[in-house]
């Protein structure tokens, strides 16, 4: 019945969050370049196996370009302003792995499994309900903003008077958000979200082989890269 495509190459969100944390360590401790490439290929492999082929390729090419950056001697004589912007790329280079791993987490996790993960991590209701609401509200917010912008365009409200502009966006947007907040809480209440019993999840959090493999590989890359 109703098969959620269980992809054997998609680690669960908990694994992906944990490895993102691990990758965060590379910002403070540089690891060997060969191991870095190992990490790039690993991330690209997971992207590829989850159907994000473009991200897999982009990952490899952009890391390659970032590696080339310090070798470009032309930069030395570039203009000061240009250098300032290039600085950003260097910053990106330092935080490359946590950022890419975070991208993998965001792109390959569906809402159901994220919510199951929060249960597994024993996050209190006070965190898991707001997070579930956020998934629900992001697309609504986009719709609301679009409608308000439409209304503003027709009324001829433009950025010529920035203060009035900000007021005219903020007010309806916040009022709409408050109204939707009331509606969503009613929806939540009528679905017994406040029920104190232990809840079940239709999409369980599965620990698959890939979760072990992926974690072990990331750990190996980090430890190997630091010791080499």
């Amino acid at each position: 019945m109703l098969d959620y495509e269980e992809n054997p190459y998609n680690p669960n969100p908990v694994t992906k969050l944990f490895t993102t944390f691990l990758f965060g360590l590379t910002a403070f401790h540089q690891i060997n370049i060969l191991f870095e490439w190992g990490a790039v290929l690993l991330l690209s492999f997971i992207f590829y196996k989850n159907g994000f082929i473009r991200d897999a390729i982009k990952n490899i090419t952009s890391f390659g370009l970032l590696c080339l950056l310090p070798n470009l001697t032309v930069i030395q004589s570039a203009h000061f302003i240009l250098k300032m912007f290039l600085m950003l790329l260097l910053m990106y280079r330092i935080f490359y792995f946590p950022v890419t791993s975070g991208k993998l987490l965001v792109k390959t996790s569906d809402v159901g499994s994220v919510i199951s993960s929060m249960d597994k991590l024993k996050l209190p209701r006070a965190v898991s309900i707001p997070v579930a609401v956020m998934f629900r509200f992001f697309p609504s917010f986009r719709e609301e903003r679009r409608n308000i912008k439409l209304a503003m365009k027709i009324r001829g409200i433009d950025f010529k008077n920035p203060l009035a502009y900000i007021e005219h966006v903020t007010v309806p947007l916040l009022i709409m958000s408050s109204n939707i907040s009331d509606d969503i809480s009613k929806a939540a209440e009528t679905r017994c979200i406040a029920n104190p019993i232990k809840k079940t999840r239709y999409i369980p959090l599965k620990v698959k082989f890939i979760d072990f493999l992926y974690t072990v590989l990331v750990l190996a890359i980090l430890v190997g890269g630091l010791l080499w």
């Binding site: 209701r125 006070a126 309900i129 707001p130 997070v131 579930a132 609401v133 956020m134 629900r136 509200f137 958000s177 408050s178 939707i180 907040s181 009331d182 969503i184 809480s185 939540a188 209440e189 979200i193 406040a194």
Partner: peptide, 9 residues
């Protein structure tokens, strides 16, 4: 629940 929803929004 209402407060938690408001937090999310």
């Amino acid at each position: 629940v209402k407060d938690l929803v408001t937090i999310g929004i």
